[in-house]
């Protein structure tokens, strides 16, 4: 068994006086592809922001067996300032913000790598556009390029499939699957359909965290863990089974 990239133990996190996550114990193994599911307000985003060191935690510990400059991060695109005067190319380059700090210069190799990522994402023709001119799907691609800029060993994605059309969703998961051969991925999504068919393991976050070593979700698990979300089953034809209505 390899060492986990990140080991979280008995973690509690909250804002002001309100506790959002309680007693979370969880490890991210190399090459795992974890789908983080759970109801809105259940603490999914809080969990990943805590792992990224953006929120201080109250209790417990997080141990990293990975350099912080080797964690790639794709935040939700809603808070991105669409009026900010910055080009798509510069946004991608900013993925090295931590590695370069204040003093280190960007060299030609960095720029070539940024262009190759834009090429892979199919948005190389948009490189000089300002970020706000992009559609939702194009912006997701640009932000994914930024997250990949530091050649991460752990890629953390917060709702990567919002504002994205079916065509790109398909491409995105194809891309993530090939990336997953070289890095662990932790992906938050409220869309269980997407998660279940692409990830290897599932973490259900609703104040507490429950980790499943498989990507199959059963009714009992959901009821037990109080995860009120849509249920997915596998079959010949992709289909969804909705959880029964409460009486």
């Amino acid at each position: 068994m390899n060492n986990p990239l990140v080991a979280i133990q008995n973690l509690s996190v909250g804002y002001q006086t309100q506790k959002v996550l309680e007693n979370v114990t969880f490890e991210i193994a190399p090459n795992d592809f974890v789908g983080v599911i759970g109801p809105n307000g259940g603490g999914k985003t809080t969990l990943i922001r805590t792992i990224l060191g953006l929120i201080p935690y109250w209790e417990g510990s997080i141990r990293y067996h990975i350099k912080s400059s080797k964690i790639g991060y794709l935040p939700q695109i809603n808070p991105i300032d669409k009026d900010f005067p910055i080009s798509v190319f510069d946004v991608v380059l900013s993925g090295l913000a931590g590695k370069k700090g204040l003093w280190k210069k960007f060299n030609p190799d960095d720029k070539i790598y940024a262009l190759s990522l834009l090429e892979q994402a199919g948005i190389i023709h948009l490189k000089n556009k300002s970020i706000g001119r992009l559609s939702g799907g194009q912006m997701q691609r640009a932000l994914l390029c930024r997250a990949l800029m530091n050649q991460p060993e752990l890629l953390i994605l917060d709702e990567p499939s919002t504002f994205v059309d079916n065509q790109f969703e398909h491409e995105l998961f194809g891309w993530l699957k090939s990336l997953n051969q070289n890095m662990a991925i932790l992906m938050v999504s409220h869309d269980l359909g997407i998660i279940s068919s692409h990830v290897k393991t599932i973490a259900c976050v609703n104040r507490k965290l429950h980790y499943h070593q498989s990507n199959k979700i059963t009714q009992e698990q959901l009821t037990h863990y109080n995860c009120p979300i849509k249920l997915i089953t596998h079959g010949e034809v992709p289909h969804q089974v909705l959880a029964p209505h409460k009486l």
Binding site: P79, I80, D90, G95, G98, K100, I131
Partner: peptide, 15 residues
């Protein structure tokens, strides 16, 4: 430019 555009991301990279 980079820190001003997305402070949260820059912080996540320990900039």
């Amino acid at each position: 430019l980079f820190f001003a555009f997305d402070e949260g991301f820059a912080k996540s990279q320990k900039a």
